[in-house]
Amino acid sequence: MSDQTQILETAPDAPSRWHEFKNSHLFHSFTVDRVAQISFGIFILYILLALFAPLLAPFDPYDIAQIDIMNSEIPPSWEAEGEADFWLGTDAQGRDMWSTILYGTRVSLMIGLCAVALQATLGICIGLCAGYFGGRVDSILMRFADVQLSFSTMMVAIVVLAVFQAAFGTELYQQLAMFMLIMVIGIAEWPQYARTIRASVLAEKKKEYIDAARVIGLRSPRIMFRHILPNTLSPILVISTVQVANAIISEASLSFLGLGMPVSEPSLGSLIAGGFEYIFSGSWWITVIPGAVLISLVLVMNLLGDWLRDVLNPKLYKG
């Protein structure tokens, strides 16, 4: 018995993975789609900027010693009153906008990616169980998902964070803000994954290779994670791109309401919230520049998600 499993597993994947990828439909459609290429390029640029923010930023916005209140509200360097030191200007506290935006992008992306990783983990496990075991497990889990989906994420997140903020007090809350944001956005959206995974598991379960795996006596977790899961990757990929975009928007909105990242450690959302008061007095750059950075980040992710959906064309769960 165990010999057979051995043979099945070590079946040579003759063309190398890279070759397989190069000949794939995915890669081919990437080479012809200009929008996808540009979006992907910008996305990579964002990742690099976020990764190397400490090296690229001329100032450290978290270091109070480097902030001089006398430098506050300097317009970008191309404006008449701009200064060459601060090419995107400074915010109301005298922080260099370029450095603050780099760090803010880092915070926003990190929260977005971590929250989606949490969503995916929860959603995939629950979806696999529901689809594979069926019956009572399935109906309870999916009923639960239905109910949770009927409450919008935004609502749940606002309420949970607001209650925690009121309970902890603002000081303590601000230290925990990033963790709380990841947890809340992560937990609130798992049904998106669970429903899609479940739908693909139901389709896969009927196929012969699953019967074969059962007949040779593999245990359920192994069939679920090693045999079914790889075949549900394309819907996961499509949802993940869009979900990261949504998570970043949610984080920005929560921070804008003052329930997210504190001003001392701003994400793009809290930067915009901080600048909103000054837009009326003419300091547009504190709001507009981080706003544009945020919108283009979310936009390229959505464009990538759209492109992936068109190319992979998975059967996504319809509401």
Binding site: A245, I249, S253, F256, I272, I295, N302
Partner: peptide
């Protein structure tokens, strides 16, 4: 798709501005 990518508070700020 551009509309989906703009957070609602930015839409609001933009319209007010």
């Amino acid at each position: 798709i551009v509309g989906i990518s703009i957070p609602v508070f930015l839409t609001a700020i933009g319209l007010i501005y």
